[in-house]
Structures are given as C-alpha cells and as structure tokens.
C-alpha cells in the first residue's frame, strides 16, 4: 500500500550567483517499509526529505507534479493542514539534532510538551512516558537528561533525544535524516531495532537518509541513490553492496575497511559519463 507518492519533485534556490537546483525531478513511492536514500554530500537528500513536510524556507521553492500522503495532496494543502500533519502524522529527525531542539528549554519539558498538550496527559503521566522514551533509546540516566538543556548533551545523546521526541506521537511516516551518525555501533543497533519494530508492528513508513552505505544495505528494504538532485539508481537494499551503477560502485570503493591497507583511499572518478 502506498503511503507517500512523490512525482517530479524539484527544489530550487535563487541566490545572488544564480539559481541552485538542489532537487531536479525526483519521483518515488513509499509503502510501509524502510526506504533508504543515499548519495554524496549536496546531492539533495535533505531537501527531498524536507520537501515532504514543505519545510523549505524562501528563497527556496518546491515544485512537484504530485506529492500525496495517505490521500492528502501535500502541494495543495494549506499551511494549517500542514501544521496538523507535521510531527503527528509525519515526523522528521533532522540531520542536526541540537539545532532543532529548543536551546533554552529543558529536554524533559520538550519531550512532555506534546504529551500534555496533544494527548492531554497529566504531568506525572507525561513524565513517565518521556522517561520511557529516553530509556528506549538507551539513555543511561534518563532522569538527569530530563533536567538537562540541549547543550549539556553529547552529540549522540542529542540525536537520541530527537528520535525519542519524534516517535512519541506515533507518526505514520518518519523521515530520519542521518539519525544515527553520532551513535556508537552498539547503541545504534538498539535504535535501529526500535525503528524496525515500528515499521514491522505498526506499519510506519520510514525514509532513512544516510551516508553509511553498509548500514543502509543491512537495515533498509529499498534504496534510492541520489546524485546532483536526481535519483540515478533504485535497488533492493540487499543488492546495494553489489550495485551496478558506476557512481554507486564508486562510492562503495571509497570506503575504508578494518584491516585494510594504509594507502590513500580511492576517490570517485567524476569524469565518467554518469557525472554529466
């Protein structure tokens, strides 16, 4: 079943030095599955994710032939309708967690805000839920973290607080932009298990944006590979490490390996046909 469909999405920015086309005609469908988006830095992954929530600030512009979420026309929706969707039905874990947390509000208050206002929970009940959410993402000392301000968290703790916060309203679609890049491998595995459970048990749709090709290969169902604002390849995640497209192969070749040689890592050959 299709939860989200995107047709010919374009994002452009007018800058002093001309128009920057960040996304150039991206189309995809998402079901209740784990869809990975990979591709080099600047290829338009974040802008694609933000477009779904219509979170592109001027001078940025979004155009699309169609962008539909669970029957709602996202291009035609009013700003009020979009606000009602954001966070509750479509949530996004931003690439930079601390930037999207309120710097002058305690973590606990931020986690409890929605629970109290949206779900009408009592203070005590909201507190219990929030602590549970922190425990689920492997925060060692949840009561302490509830009282902390965002700048008092480590990089990976900020990332986990964001994930906890986005998952509290049980969204139908989660867009996670580099959600585990600051996590060590064992904590990362626990966080991925939570996301996996939500897709499997609750039928949540997940867009998982990541640079980590090996992680995407083992965690996602399907992968879109982006290059300069376009999707250059779409494949089953299990095939990612044996991708045929020279760009995807090029990215894979650049990776260091434990026990590998100390020579300079191979770069990406940008002179090839696909690069133009």
């Amino acid at each position: 079943m299709t939860l989200l469909s995107v047709r010919n999405l374009k994002v452009s920015f007018d800058t002093e030095t001309g128009v920057v086309e960040a996304v150039r005609g991206v189309s995809f469908d998402l079901g209740r599955e784990r869809l990975g988006i990979v591709g080099e830095s600047g290829s338009g992954k974040t802008m694609t994710g933000r477009s779904v929530l219509r979170l592109i600030r001027p001078p940025g512009r979004i155009e699309a032939d169609e962008m539909r979420f669970d029957g709602v026309d996202l291009m035609g929706a009013s700003e009020t309708q979009m606000r009602a969707l954001r966070g509750r039905r479509i949530a996004m874990v931003m690439q930079d967690p601390k930037y999207s947390l309120n710097p002058v509000m305690k973590v606990g208050a931020q986690l409890m805000e929605g629970l109290r206002q949206r779900d009408g929970l009592t203070r005590a009940a909201a507190h219990i839920k929030a602590v549970e959410a922190l425990e689920a993402v492997q925060i060692r000392d949840p009561e302490r973290v509830m009282l902390a301000y965002p700048h008092e968290l480590s990089g990976g703790m900020g990332q986990r607080v964001m994930i906890a916060m986005m998952l509290i309203p049980n969204p139908d679609l989660l867009i996670a932009d580099e959600p585990t890049s600051a996590l060590d491998v064992t904590v990362q595995a626990e966080v991925l298990a939570i996301l996996d459970g939500l897709v499997r048990d609750r039928g949540m749709g997940l867009i998982f944006i990541s640079h980590d090709l090996r992680l995407v290969a083992r965690f996602c169902d399907r992968v879109l590979v982006m290059y300069r604002g376009k999707i250059v390849e779409e494949l089953a995640a299990r095939d990612l490490l044996h991708a045929r497209h020279p760009y995807t192969q090029g990215l894979l070749n650049c990776l260091p390996r434990i026990g590998g040689p100390r020579q300079p890592l191979p770069g990406l050959d940008r002179s090839a046909d696909w690069a133009v």
Binding site: E40, S41, H211, L213, C254, L255, P256, P266, G267, L268
Partner: peptide, 8 residues
C-alpha cells in the same frame, strides 16, 4: 557527516 567519497 560526510559521504563515502568526501570522507575518502
């Protein structure tokens, strides 16, 4: 925060 090619 870098992709494989820029990381390399």
């Amino acid at each position: 925060a870098l992709d494989a090619s820029v990381q390399a």
